[in-house]
Design a protein around this nucleic acid. Sequence first.
DNA 1: GCTCAATTCAAACGGGTGTTTGAATACTGG
DNA 2: CCAGTATTCAAACACCCGTTTGAATTGAGC
Lengths: 268, 268
Amino acid sequence: MDLEVSRPEADTRSRILDAAQGLFVRHGLEATSLRMITARANANIAAAHYHFGSKDALIEAVFRRGLARLNEMRLAELDRLEREAGGGPLKPRQVLEAFFGTALMLAADRDQGGFEFMRLLGRTMTDPNQFIRTFIAAEYQEVMERFKDALFAALPKVPHEEIIWRLHFMLGAMSYALAGTDALRLATGLSGEDDPRAIAPRLMSFLLGGLRAPLAGRPAEIAKSAAPAAAPAMNRINDAPLRQPARTSGSKALARSNRPTPSHRSSK
Amino acid sequence: MDLEVSRPEADTRSRILDAAQGLFVRHGLEATSLRMITARANANIAAAHYHFGSKDALIEAVFRRGLARLNEMRLAELDRLEREAGGGPLKPRQVLEAFFGTALMLAADRDQGGFEFMRLLGRTMTDPNQFIRTFIAAEYQEVMERFKDALFAALPKVPHEEIIWRLHFMLGAMSYALAGTDALRLATGLSGEDDPRAIAPRLMSFLLGGLRAPLAGRPAEIAKSAAPAAAPAMNRINDAPLRQPARTSGSKALARSNRPTPSHRSSK
DNA sequence: GCTCAATTCAAACGGGTGTTTGAATACTGG
DNA sequence: CCAGTATTCAAACACCCGTTTGAATTGAGC
């Protein structure tokens, strides 16, 4: 069941892309080998190089395909809303729906790989690999400019820098939710709620609350109506030198090994 | 400058842990080899196996060391606040400060590796590797239980399930911010604002706003005072089948290669 | 000073990696 | 039907991986 190819009828290039996307999201970019990919795609290893040129180029192709779809949907929705608004500024909620709602909608598409790709994208946003992050940033740039401007217009009284920060925070919350692998799931006891449709309304409500939160420092008005209460002076969190908790208490030596019983760890 | 060991005087075991942490955060767990680690730590490859037993066990040790410090600080702060409250419930803001403020404070500690570890932790929260995520979840469990209960008490009118979701969203926002690698940084033009002390007040304000946002569906009161306006009916985001944007337009063949000029890609 | 365990070391092991090769096959336009 | 390109294939290449080995080195206790 694991060796099956997703769409046996598709051409080799698409089969490789599909297989790569599925394996990337399951094992990560580095841990997925071309041999795993081509085996799953019922293709030859050399075929991958023939169609893409290198593993890096294949990774790029996977993200280019997915991001093209996501970007197009997001821009189409933003265009529609701005057309309806007739030149006037959108509401913050509308901008968020066009940006995050669209992504969540795409993530709800399990059949055409949208779910898989959005999960992959969520995980890769924090990938250490400089190369792929730079590539994603470039593919995102045009869309981000549009949405940044839309948010600036929607929140005229909020400093642009603050809006950018909150955009980042919102993106983090969504990426993390879409990644669906958070280590806290087990710790907090959330069952396998993987369906983005269940997450969507909750996440949108959370994001809107965060976006319209009072500015740090003093209770400032955001947009037309924000919660007037509770704007704590939360500056200068960092003071006092950090204390170093006690070392992890001796017990060196190796964990598991089959050396000829060096009898470490016997030091009591 | 890159081959230097962080603390030349420390013992081999600590040098390996430090080198591993630094390389993990820069290249990722999979892409970092034991040879890279031991070379940077001025140690022999076999020494790593002698002290830790395997690469997986070394990874565990790095996270165990960092999480022990983080967990201790978080619990100490929560204990202190609950003691001051004398059995009564804490304010939501206090719980967030104990959980996220502490993490951000630790992340501001560049000298003792706190910054490095928190960045590593942020990236690993969405790592595809099941093994390490399970391990982190286990190390987190006790702390999460405590903070979950504190939030339940702080928000008595909010369903527990909703609180857990928002806890996840908040964690995503922070992990992403701490990871410091988000691909959008380049796209949105935020300069190298890496200092967690600059992020802290902004993030705390955002998180509090998200936590206290009105529940999705109908405008419900959260805690003692939440924004009464703007509680959009944001249900059922997903309807209408997804449209498939035009394919990426022909142009197959290889990207770069030095085959004896198979003259692909010449098909115009 | 000697003993014995703890630690370090160079070298090798088997296996998996991305990539390349040159030939075999499939396909398509004339 | 045939020429010529596009695609697939098995095999090999050089390299790096985590792990193991057995000997050399160190260091503390008697």
